[in-house]
């Protein structure tokens, strides 16, 4: 699967996603400047992304823990998610995400 990731300057990159890994891990390994300081424990809200082009509705809805942790994120929008809580799968091939400002 592919993840289409846009950085904070608007540059788009296609990143290969590995089934079962999180989108945060793929963004990090793909060299995008994502902080993810808690390492994927849904504990810091620094892997915040916006889900673009109708992909938001296709995702499994956020858990209560993720909704709570999004309260600590900056510039939250209705299409905000924490990328450490999104698992790569073929269903998400082509998903578009934009890094939220820090």
């Amino acid at each position: 699967m592919k993840i289409i990731a846009k950085d904070r300057e608007g540059k788009e990159t296609a990143i290969e996603g590995r089934d079962g890994w999180t989108i945060m891990e793929m963004l990090r390994d793909g060299g995008l400047p994502i902080t993810a300081e808690c390492g994927g424990a849904c504990a810091c809200a620094t892997c915040h992304v916006y889900i673009e082009d109708g992909w938001y509705e296709k995702l499994t809805p956020p858990s209560e823990a993720e909704v709570d942790m999004l309260d600590m994120a900056l510039a939250v929008q209705p299409n905000s998610r924490l990328s450490c809580q999104l698992t790569c799968s073929e269903d998400l091939d082509g998903i578009k995400v934009t890094l939220a400002p820090e």
């Binding site: 909704v67 709570d68 600590m72 939250v76 905000s80």
Partner: peptide, 8 residues
């Protein structure tokens, strides 16, 4: 002000 009508 908060982004949603819910709080942690």
């Amino acid at each position: 002000v908060h982004h949603r009508d819910g709080f942690r």
